[in-house]
Design a protein around this nucleic acid. Sequence first.
DNA 1: TGGGTCATGTAACCTGTTACATGATTAG
DNA 2: CTAATCATGTAACAGGTTACATGACCCA
Lengths: 193, 193
Amino acid sequence: MLKHGILGLLNYGSMTGYEINKAFKDSLSYFWNAQTSQIYRELQTIKSNGWATDEVVEQIGKPDKKIFTITESGRAELNRWLVEDNTEFVTRIPILMKTFFRGERSLEENIAYFSQLEDMGIDFLTQFQNEPPKVEDYSKRLKDPMNAVFWEMTVEFGKMYIQMYFSWVNQCKMRLEGIKNGSAQETPERQPN
Amino acid sequence: MLKHGILGLLNYGSMTGYEINKAFKDSLSYFWNAQTSQIYRELQTIKSNGWATDEVVEQIGKPDKKIFTITESGRAELNRWLVEDNTEFVTRIPILMKTFFRGERSLEENIAYFSQLEDMGIDFLTQFQNEPPKVEDYSKRLKDPMNAVFWEMTVEFGKMYIQMYFSWVNQCKMRLEGIKNGSAQETPERQPN
DNA sequence: TGGGTCATGTAACCTGTTACATGATTAG
DNA sequence: CTAATCATGTAACAGGTTACATGACCCA
């Protein structure tokens, strides 16, 4: 998956590991985390699979750099992956894993927990609004405006997700507050379907 | 994370690896995939960390089974994890990774792609409605009704997520259909903020 | 006689995380 | 003088995936 993300970026134009890392942070990091070390490792694999070639360029006043260029075989692999029909719907959501077992802690602590989740969402949103995904810079060379349509779609997903997330968090918080204030119908003894 | 999920289940009552696997499929699998082999491996680690003990029980007409029981130290670890404040907001979403690079393919193919995403959502929803998360069975021994509140919250998240997902997919599909039918304002040349 | 349930895993590989390492240039 | 930017990674470990292996019992 990460391999194919890198391949996709290289398809926009030749880049160094450093640039890929930045491009990643500026766009894909909103829904996919990748460590710098992992990117360099994947580049090795990509090269040894023949999906890209590299060229070392010496620089004055700066460290040497290694520019990766996608090959025909790499482009074929990218397209194979794009067309392949195996993406799974289920995504690991760490927040839900924790929420699931929260019955173990006190009511007050759990109300605070949801406030904390709310804060996390706000932090993400702030970051998202201050430094919105900006792949545009990396693809000036790409004349095809269709790419931008898909970038926007992933951004749109992000916006809708955050909105949904906030309403979920608030709903959970309100429910716990209802229980705290002793409204009996909030505790599920025989909840309706 | 998986370790702590298993620990959480063991906290509801002693179980074999087989039962944990089933409990997982019936509840946590809606937001966390785990292979059977992985569960057995994690149980080894859990045991060697002293978070659970095991007891082999011979059976007639059935294979022997190994019942795991959470220890005080395991319960402490579960609570440490629950209280710990390190859950990251960003989740890897494979579907977005693919969508991001879809500009590479044709319009028609991309419209079909979103139909396919829609079908995936429908499949998930069907499965979700036919066999809804049912942890209840595994926790009859737990008198505390508070647990169910949190289980329901994760189910609620799932419902809201699917809804959001469907409206995103349809919105994307409609946008592509708009482009296909030649409405110029859909192609982003200078899109507004 | 064929498929489902019960019940255990191992081995190899791939992917992700954490910690460490180096060092010059440039802008404030 | 200090922090950021540029630019490369390695090593070790943790977590996830795929393939394989075994075998009895029960129900239709």
